[in-house]
Nucleic acid binder design. Structure first.
Lengths: 336, 336
DNA sequence: TTGTATGCGTTATCAT
DNA sequence: ATGATAACGCATACAA
């Protein structure tokens, strides 16, 4: 490993001067600076992020937290898109990213401890159980934190426009003439509550009744449970004409259930999803759904976090809502 | 931040003793060790990975490389599964993971330089253009490296059993009576070459002719290009009875093309995919495909890499082939 | 059994 | 404009 000491020897100057030259300090002559940079390049010098972090108290490293337990793992397209964009924006701004988890090897630590252990300058909480005390501890700590799809007091957050998204879907379906709307929802997170409330409110505004039977629980990203919920809906004496699924992937569970009953989409039953992942638009018929701006959410999360890290004095917590977009697809029939 | 110095003051011992006690060194009395650990816990002491890395020359941090350019981004299920399992196994063994990329912020570096900059103890190359000089430099460097789905000399590698997987698919299809097999392949990587060669060899063994027209190029994970290839196949005077797609996702492009032509799967056309991602088994009809052991591949990659890091003296490069599994599905008709 | 001294690679302060 | 020195937090060889 070639260090500034090697360069200082090769150039016949002190280590301090080398450091200054390499960091573009003003108090070093043009010529020496040039000479130093040249030999640094010739020797293949690379700064050592570890030493720099230790000295400066800044690691240029941000933590990313995906707690898999809640099913918000990296392998769901919504989250992997977020991860990818957080990564891209962070790197663009000069930061590396590291995963934060519970329990590293034999040492057991919580999220906060893990982040401190790695000297993360900040953490993006991308998916988590926000009731988990370990998550709350991290969010309340001195470590800059940005949350996605949940808002902690005094933390910045990036929110998907769940209320407007659901409203757009309901209005679209209603405009197609539907008045019997069933809603299968995921676990009762705050996101779910928002979507459900928006569903109910919009239905009320449009004068559409919502029988209790039409609201069914399931699990996000789990086609099986949505399939079961679909089956229950089909068993009702008064079937709905359109089913709202918790997400695009869950719809697939409903799809095969409908098929078993010999029901064609959208002729015999209309459906809508949520998320607008690429998959949904490659299915036939194309799924009617609401595309969340996942890439934009990740980008904004990284941007906001790094801004807070680099300008802590002028920082104020900020909520950014990222708009999505209705994808009309063709899974809602016009029965107007 | 509470350091060993704080503990040493609180306990009235030297920093060295604290360090030893905390690391379970044998040469410190039971009582002092206990006292030190107790106050460490009371003070909320956390080791500083940065300082430790600087001192020990080991960061307990491994790099993971996904070069998005080749379409092997994190948001494809095959790769996100690999990422997830690399992460899980690494953490189990006490290592954090960091993404390695080109160009961090304003400083431009290649993969090798990035890995050194972050003092990675090793790197998992999960998806990359293996002809890229920057990749080759990393693989040939002194940094321990494990590659997936490609084998560099003197590097360990984890390989999916592409040859056997393709053979299994061909034999399955042939056993169903098919003799007109078309093959749509992805970009010409070494993986593609293996699959294509295995396809041809198995066909030859089974006495199945393979007209040049039946081999079509497309792009991995790109339903559109596979859709176009499908269209070309359907335009042939002598249509195949079964189409092999580059991967499960690409099949969706073919699916909608078949639908446009009014062809039902598998009645009018049989199809097989590759990868066996969860999606493929939730489609109806379930896709006939070959499931690659992505989780196992990631786990083995991490295990092998860390073994090399921790026991460099006894290390020898190793190739591990991870078996997959034929998923029969129901997209191949029996025309025996 | 405990403590002293030193250095990992870097930056920052303060002399010169 | 340049250099000597210290410090970041930790682990280790060696001395006591």
């Amino acid at each position: 490993m070639v260090t500034i000491t090697d360069i200082s020897k090769a150039c016949g100057v002190s280590r301090a001067t080398v450091s200054k030259a390499l960091n573009g300090a003003p108090d070093v002559s043009q010529e020496t600076a040039a000479r130093i940079r040249k030999t640094a390049a010739a020797l293949g010098y690379l700064p050592n992020a570890t030493a720099r972090a230790l000295k400066m108290g800044r690691s240029y490293n941000i933590g990313v937290l995906f707690s898999d337990e809640t099913g918000g793992g990296i392998s769901h397209e919504y989250f992997s898109q977020i991860l990818e964009s957080v990564k891209a924006e962070s790197e663009r701004l000069g930061y590396d990213i590291t995963f934060i988890s519970k329990d590293l090897g034999r040492m057991s630590m919580d999220y906060y401890e893990h982040a401190k252990y790695r000297s993360c300058d900040g953490v993006v909480i991308a998916s988590a159980d926000f009731q988990d005390p370990a998550i709350m501890r991290l969010a309340a700590s001195e470590i800059p934190t940005v949350t996605l799809d949940y808002s902690f007091d005094n933390c910045s957050s990036i929110l998907s426009d769940n209320v407007r998204g659901m409203e757009a879907l309901v209005r679209f379906v209603r405009a197609k003439g539907h008045r019997k709307l069933a809603f299968i929802h995921g676990e009762m997170t705050s996101v779910t509550q928002k979507r459900l409330a928006s569903f109910r409110r919009t239905c009320a505004e449009l004068g559409v009744p919502v029988p209790a039977d039409y609201i069914r629980p399931a699990v996000y990203h789990d086609p099986r449970s949505s399939g079961l919920a679909t089956r229950a809906l089909l068993a009702l004496p008064d079937r709905p004409t359109c089913i709202f699924f918790p997400d695009d992937l869950s719809f697939l569970g409903g799809m095969s259930e409908l098929e078993k009953h010999g029901l064609a989409i959208p002729k015999d039953m209309s459906v809508v999803g949520y998320d607008g992942i690429p998959l949904s638009q490659v299915l036939r018929p194309r799924l009617t759904t609401y595309r969340q701006g996942a890439e934009r959410m990740g980008t904004e999360a990284a941007r906001l976090l790094i801004e807070q890290i680099e300008r802590p004095d002028t920082w104020l917590p900020q909520q950014i809502t990222v708009e999505g977009e209705l994808l009309e697809g063709s899974t809602v029939s016009d029965i107007g």
